[in-house]
Design a binder for these strands. Structure first.
Lengths: 181, 181
DNA sequence: GCCGTATATGCAACTAGTTGCACTGCACCC
DNA sequence: GGGTGCAGTGCAACTAGTTGCATATACGGC
């Protein structure tokens, strides 16, 4: 499992509470590793037991107390070990492809609507990524170390979303053409 | 869940046993929806209970008996309903991106080796897809209906693998450059 | 005072997916 | 007659992920 490791990576960048982590998984880390707050809280608990992170309760005024987590020495070791260890390529589960493949069993027009919807969702995501690229990484060739790594991951997101948008367009064009005949 | 639907799509193309389905998930459907034989057998059982597929035991000579599954009327209806119904975009879980983002916490050289390995895996997959494209779809503009849909899904695989190979190359070049400085 | 929203954490029950193993039948080879 | 390997089905136990709900503090608006 990699959720532990995704959390280690995030806490290594900056210590924080479960709540803060959940927000990062909403808007940054979550772009390439999705997780709900439930998963995060449960996993943090386990990681404390493993000694990978340490936990400190912090009282706040105007807000409920929070538990701030920090990567421990054992966590840093585990992270380094995991980074270098071979992993399987992802198991692919792409629902939209299943739908396209099954198109003959249903209404091709309705399916085209669904694909157009996904096309727009991916185009939106792509725009978000491109905006981040422009704002946070105006001069990529000057990057080094951590910011470089963050930039490279963003580049992966851009490539993936762009590929999806283009594929949706290809599918839509082909379905339209097939419909005309 | 979409495994039921992936199975419906596959059985709609051609009826078959759990074993045959498991093989298709290894080499064709599995390119975009992964499933083990365990999942398939369990799900087929459930689908019989739901009335989505019918099952017939077939004696074979020289081999153990098998159960051949076929899409039932209710299954066809369910498939048509599902095709037109909106689905969420996939929850992304891309381990390699997590590793790149965490690169600063470990040995960048070792990580580069891991990325190169994945690059080759994706390049291999890409070659497989391109070979299928060349062999099974020599004239894409003439395609229609089911073969067209199959071709379009293959095109998605090609685009995705190509994007991954190119991203790995970009990451490797950037890490090398950063290492030199 | 009540409602909505944001911060903050968590249990319980469920669904989905993985891993390891077990069994049968038969063919083929040494 | 013993091993290997493919075809074929399946249970049991586990890990991972989802969903619905519960709880508490506190700020601001009506």
């Amino acid at each position: 499992m990699a959720l532990e490791h995704a959390i280690l990576v995030s806490l290594d960048e900056r210590s924080g509470s479960g709540y803060e982590l959940a927000q990062r998984f909403e808007k940054s880390i979550g772009f390439f590793w999705a997780a709900t707050h439930q998963q995060i809280y449960r996993t943090l608990k386990r990681m404390v037991e493993l000694g990978w992170v340490s936990c400190q309760e912090v009282a706040q005024d105007g807000r409920p107390d929070k538990k701030v987590y920090e990567v421990a020495e054992a966590g840093r070791e585990e992270l380094a070990r995991w980074l270098a260890s071979p992993g399987e390529p992802e198991t692919i589960r792409h629902e939209l492809s299943v739908k396209v493949r099954g198109a003959s069993a249903g209404d091709a027009r309705a399916l085209a609507g669904e694909i157009a919807r996904h096309r727009d969702l991916h185009a939106e995501r792509l725009d978000v990524y491109l905006a981040i690229e422009k704002k946070d990484f105006p001069d990529p060739s000057a990057l080094s170390g951590r910011p470089l790594h963050q930039y490279l991951v963003l580049r992966g997101g851009i490539r993936a979303e762009r590929a999806l948008v283009e594929w949706c367009d290809e599918v839509l064009a082909a379905l339209r053409e097939d419909d005309r005949r």
